[in-house]
Computed example of a mutant assay.
Amino acid sequence: KAYYCFCQPEELEAERQQSGEKGEMIGYSGKCRSLTAEDVAARLAQGIKPTVRFRVPEHKVLVVDDLVRGAVMFETDLLGDYIIVKSDGIPTYNFAVVIDDYLMEITHVIRAEEHLSNTPRQMLIYDALGFELPQFAHISLILGSDKQKMSKRHGATSVLQYRENGYLPEALFNFLSLLGWSPEGENEILPAQEIIQQFSLKRVSKSPAVFDVDKLNWLNSQYIKKMSPSELAPLLKPFLQDFPYQEELNRLTEEQYLLLVSAVQERLVSLKDIKEEAAAIFAPLGDDSYEEEARKVLSQPAVIPVLQAFKEQLTAADDVEANKQLIKRIIKENQLKPKEVFMPLRCALSGVTHGPELPFLISIWGGEETIKRIDYTLYMIETAVEG
């Protein structure tokens, strides 16, 4: 089943070159196949260190019954006698892995499609040793967005890196399970237990999967949205280390912190986003705080009465529901459209036209800070009019 090969690297290279020049298949010629016991003993006595080659049967077809790819055929004549033990006595991968898997009683070998070409060589060793064959399944590669094999240049490659970047374990598990496998039905947001119950190699794709970061971000945001504020709150705290407005953050009560979480929850793609979202809430207003669209809104004549009415009637800023009712009352009393109140208030308090729900922001800031922001905007409007 195997034999010593004393061919030296330079001899093998010369053989390869000659085969290439003749247009023949490049492989081992079998030169040492027919060495007698005396020939072997003589070479060993000379101190020549041999390799051990597997004697591949000729003119046969091996069929790999792959659980993903179906029947894959290999002609033994194209394999050539391959090395199973190197001249330094170290076994090669194809030999060692068979022994290792047999001793560990491996029943299924599931690996990348790159190893499919190794399988016939391993099957021959299994057969030669009288070992029972495991079942093989060769999974397609995972590609980057450029359709090239995934590597470090495509971004984070360690699970720890994804955790540090604010991805939830359950979202990452869900995402990775969908790379090359599809569940029954249309729903792709599945808890781990359901994925485990549904998983079958029959639904594993033969085509390469693309590691789509946009899809991972979407899945992660969906898992964040599904959490309750009390579940999400402690997960966000590690990402608020070195927060630029730490003093303001520390002044929040536990209830206000939960309101902060509720206010930004819909906007988070990863847990890491909390720092930017929270900073936008706590950043003080200044001349350069107002975006151009916000300045246009604040330049409308009806804005000042709305801001003054809100300032005069604000009594329970810490109560989200009271803030909602106050805004509704101003709309009704002034016979205005909701947008004609909500938009001026948002622009006046935050300097931007879009953001978290206004009643939540007011409760997070509290009455003093909210009035301070209204006063600053009124001053800014009056200064602009006088200018």
Score class of each variant (00 low, 15 high):
residue 55 R to E: 14
residue 168 L to Y: 07
residue 383 T to P: 01
residue 271 L to P: 00
residue 377 T to E: 07
residue 90 I to L: 12
residue 203 R to H: 12
residue 90 I to K: 08
residue 380 M to W: 11
residue 280 A to V: 07
residue 181 W to H: 01
residue 359 P to G: 00
residue 93 Y to T: 02
residue 196 I to S: 06
residue 40 V to F: 07
residue 160 L to T: 15
residue 281 I to K: 00
residue 81 D to H: 13
residue 281 I to W: 10
residue 12 L to I: 12
residue 65 D to Y: 04
residue 329 R to N: 13
residue 335 Q to E: 15
residue 166 G to R: 08
residue 218 W to Q: 14
residue 331 I to M: 14
residue 94 N to K: 05
residue 332 K to E: 15
residue 167 Y to D: 14
residue 195 I to Q: 06
residue 134 P to N: 06
residue 102 Y to E: 05
residue 194 E to W: 05
residue 311 K to N: 06
residue 248 E to M: 09
residue 76 T to A: 14
residue 137 A to C: 03
residue 347 C to W: 08
residue 197 Q to P: 04
residue 114 E to L: 04
residue 375 D to L: 10
residue 51 T to C: 12
residue 29 S to R: 11
residue 178 L to G: 05
residue 374 I to W: 03
residue 43 R to A: 04
residue 351 G to H: 12
residue 179 L to P: 08
residue 169 P to F: 14
residue 86 K to I: 09
residue 1 K to N: 11
residue 180 G to W: 13
residue 208 P to M: 13
residue 316 A to Y: 05
residue 271 L to I: 00
residue 161 Q to L: 02
residue 161 Q to N: 01
residue 79 L to F: 05
residue 310 F to M: 03
residue 117 S to Y: 01
residue 233 A to K: 09
residue 212 D to L: 03
residue 168 L to P: 14
residue 227 M to E: 14
residue 72 V to K: 12
residue 282 F to G: 03
residue 146 D to Q: 14
residue 295 R to M: 00
residue 266 E to T: 06
residue 187 N to P: 10
residue 339 K to S: 03
residue 277 E to A: 00
residue 73 M to W: 11
residue 158 S to C: 11
residue 359 P to S: 04
residue 163 R to N: 12
residue 383 T to G: 09
residue 172 L to P: 04
residue 332 K to R: 15
residue 283 A to H: 11
residue 287 D to C: 01
residue 296 K to N: 00
residue 330 I to W: 09
residue 186 E to F: 07
residue 157 T to R: 02
residue 93 Y to L: 00
residue 319 D to G: 00
residue 259 L to Q: 11
residue 354 H to C: 06
residue 317 A to H: 09
residue 200 S to I: 02
residue 19 S to L: 15
residue 85 V to I: 09
